[in-house]
Design a binder for these strands. Structure first.
Length: 763
DNA sequence: TGCCGCTGGATTTTT
DNA sequence: TCCAGCGGCA
């Protein structure tokens, strides 16, 4: 069987056919990088007779891994046994590390059922350690400490090494906290995300046999998004590839946007130095975007100095000009976007899934959400507060973690009094103290407290109850879903929420039931759905993994960071203002400003056909109104590719479906802000419904739903139907502000009568 | 022990 | 603006 490579361009083909020795592929945005990666692996297997068993392909997200696996399965068809593509390791660094660590945990002093601490768990533990060592979290902000520890870890620096290179009090404190934190993690048989890498590196570098085995096995290795690897990942890659040196790395230095998380752009810039015999292939033809969008992207990123010079080209059509819109404030900006979505939906028959709205910071999503809600446009936010971050879900996960790994203190403490069992802080502190004095785990101390007599009788009884529950939970058996349901049942989580009888509590109970569905889905899609396997999957999954699980029609909202690797026909980038994007904290240092610019480059290159860059004359952030000038990144795009529009005028007073009772844009002048062209272009002139005098010519605004006649009145308990959110129940009424709990999302939203697309359902 | 209200802090977050 | 954490109080 031979793989058909004729659909590839010469550069792509060269990358695919260079199978021996190190290979660096510099792949510009939209240049068919994923195709190259998958074709190369398929080529190795079908034409070079490499066993899938010998292939390791590392991606940066689970989603990318899943996609690659899928594409490979299609390219390869089904092959038997070890030739099956299932023998291949296609995974993220972290998933790969977990797999290696589970196998050899004992060599590092862990057991194979170790818990993976996510951000929240790790933060709790650091907080405890800081209390224990009596560090004041005012002088030593916990997040600063955590970021020192985390960056030390990504540099493969231990606590001792950090201590040596510390000069400031904060660094010194961080080093001490780091040391204790590590001890506590080991005692809890737990690892945080950084540890997965650090410990894998230790495993490989300290155990020759283990390293040998993996080196022999993985003769062909590829790493995607190489520009975003940190030092630990870099070191692991080099260890694994050292013997055969068939290492392919793919990346784009212009899309390096995670340096603040320890990603080291030098990994890609200096690959040829590390592997002097490397073949270098540049993929510079873009297949994604219109010529104009590409020119804009090129022009912006060309302002960076620390990069490999390159210019993407395309044979795609020139396309529309890039629309830049000056809004009067963030609500106007959001309304404009909503209006354009509706307009393009009608004029160009676009579906909601064609649109994406990007922003620099999550805080910006609120006003956008608001406008979409009012316009009745279905949307989905990717990232932000996630289902799995909800307190009640984390509680369930706490129980599961404690069941799987009895040493996991953080989880134990999370669930010890959830639901309330009368075990308060003072009891926990006493148990903790005894644990430390006797140098035993928290659970042992807890059991001792039940046996012995150093706690008040009531606390002792409560603890007894809790340990009994734990014992019961740990002996449960059954298929995964039953198991999880039984654990939740015995823990009394749902029962406690239902007893509360408040709307919020019922919603939480509902969320837990939703979690059972997640369990079922996991069980159905995995070969051996054990509880530990499920926990692992949970720990490593993210919201992004489910971006397109939804078959429904949604406009997608997310931060620019989250958008990396995705593409949409129509892209809006909101908040292109100085101090928002580039962000305030990154504006004044050249290196971080360049990263902001790369971020802008990433945002622009997500767009296939149309690109909107919006900014606002005034914007309220955290309750404070700011006036920011347009982002320099807009100015870096050649004017002939930009069509500016917008307001920024005295007369603006809104269209009627934005919030009432606000300042309605009644600030002074600002016409110059839009770069000469104030209004009109590209924006349909729709008389503003319900707009008051003064709208006039400047009131020209995008199309949008008009305010509905206010015929209905609502009261608590009414069943309603919302255009986007479906059925719900009114929970509070405050004038024409309603709070409605929706059945489908189980969320409570604040809506305004007469603006929101809701109707009362007759009962 | 548990609730309430005050205070301070709030980029980005593939894992 | 909005959330989490902590201290004060019943």
């Amino acid at each position: 069987m031979t793989l058909d490579l004729t659909s590839l361009n010469p550069a792509q083909r060269q990358a695919v056919e260079t199978t021996e020795g190190p290979l660096l592929v510099l792949a510009g945005a939209g240049s068919g990088k994923t195709r190259v990666l998958t074709y190369r692996i398929a080529h190795l297997i079908t034409d070079k007779r490499v066993s899938p068993h010998e292939i390791l392909a590392i991606t940066f997200t689970n989603k990318a891994a899943a996609e690659m696996r899928e594409r490979l399965a299609t390219l390869l068809g089904s092959l038997p046994g070890q030739y099956s593509s299932r023998a291949m390791w296609v995974s993220t660094f972290h998933a790969m590390c977990v797999r290696m660590l589970r196998t050899d945990a004992k060599l590092l002093g862990f057991t194979s059922n170790f818990t993976i601490y996510d951000d929240d768990d790790s933060k709790r533990l650091v907080r405890e350690v800081m209390k224990e060592l009596e560090y004041d979290d005012k002088r030593y902000p916990i997040n600063a400490v955590r970021s020192r520890i985390s960056s030390a870890k990504s540099e493969l620096m231990g606590a001792a090494a950090l201590a040596e290179s510390s000069f400031t009090p904060l660094d010194k404190a961080a080093a001490k906290i780091f040391a204790r934190y590590e001890t506590r993690l080991l005692a809890a048989n737990s690892m945080d995300f950084d540890d997965l890498l650090v410990n894998t590196h230790r495993l490989l570098s300290e155990n020759v046999k283990v390293l040998d085995a993996y080196q022999d096995r993985f003769r062909y290795i590829s790493v995607d998004e190489y520009q975003d690897t940190n030092h630990a990942q870099y070191a692991i890659t080099n260890l694994l590839a050292a013997k055969h040196r068939h290492l392919m790395v793919v990346g784009d230095d212009d899309q390096s946007i995670y340096s603040w998380r320890g990603a080291d752009i030098r990994n890609i810039l200096e690959f040829e130095h590390d592997y002097p015999e490397a073949t270098v292939v540049k993929l510079e033809e873009n297949y994604r975007s219109t010529a104009r969008i590409l020119m804009a992207a090129n022009a912006v990123v060309a302002n960076n100095t620390n990069r490999k010079p390159k210019t993407l080209f395309t044979s795609n059509a020139e396309g529309e000009k890039i629309a830049s819109y000056l809004a009067s404030d963030e609500r106007d900006e959001a309304r404009f976007i909503a209006g354009e979505i509706e307009r393009l939906g009608r004029a160009e028959h676009r579906r909601y899934t064609d649109f994406a709205i990007f922003y620099r910071t999550n805080a910006q999503s609120r006003s956008l959400e608001d406008a979409l809600l009012r316009a009745g446009i279905a949307y989905k936010i990717v990232g932000g507060t996630r289902f799995f971050d909800r307190a009640e879900i984390r509680d369930v996960m706490g129980y599961l973690k404690a069941v799987v790994n009895p040493a996991d203190e953080i989880s134990l403490k999370r669930i010890i009094n959830t639901p309330k069992r009368g075990i308060g802080d003072s009891t926990i502190d006493k148990v903790q103290l005894v644990a430390r004095e006797r140098n035993v785990g928290f659970e042992d101390a807890m059991r001792a407290a039940v046996e012995e007599d150093w706690l008040a009788a009531r606390a002792r009884m409560s603890l007894l109850g809790f340990t009994q529950i734990l014992d019961e939970l740990r002996v449960l058996e059954g298929d995964l879903r039953d198991l999880v349901e039984m654990i939740v049942e015995k823990a009394g989580l749902i029962a406690a929420y239902e007893a509360e009888r408040t709307d919020e509590a019922l919603g939480r109970a509902e969320n837990i039931r939703e979690f059972f569905t997640v369990v079922s889905e996991f069980a159905a899609s995995h070969d051996e759905p054990s509880l530990p396997a499920f926990m692992e999957w949970l720990a490593l999954r993210t919201d992004l993994d489910s971006v397109d699980e939804c078959v429904d029609e949604f406009v997608t909202l997310m931060t620019v960071h989250t958008a990396k690797g995705l593409e949409y026909p129509v892209v809006f980038v909101a908040g292109l203002e100085e101090s928002i994007f580039p962000h305030q904290n990154s504006m004044f240092e050249p290196a971080s400003l360049e990263e902001e610019r790369r971020l802008a480059y990433v945002a622009i290159t997500r767009a296939r056909e149309r690109l909107y860059l919006t900014h606002a004359y005034s914007r309220s952030i955290f309750g404070v109104t700011q006036h920011n000038s347009p982002s320099r990144f807009i100015g870096e795009i050649p004017a002939e590719h930009v069509e500016a529009s917008g307001v920024g005028s005295v007369g603006f007073s809104g269209t009627g479906w934005e919030k009432r009772g606000d300042r309605s844009g009644s600030y002074g002048h600002g016409t110059a802000e839009s770069g000469g062209r104030v209004f009109g272009s590209g924006t349909r002139q729709v008389p503003a419904a319900g707009s008051s005098a003064g709208g006039g010519a400047f009131g020209a605004r995008s199309a949008g739903p008009k305010r509905k006649e206010q015929t209905e009145t609502f009261s608590v308990g009414d069943a309603v139907d919302h255009k986007v959110f479906g059925r719900g129940t009114v929970t509070t009424v405050n004038g024409d502000a309603l709070e409605i709990r929706f059945d489908r999302t189980r969320e409570t939203k604040k809506l305004l009568v007469g603006y929101a697309p809701i109707v009362k359902i007759k009962q």
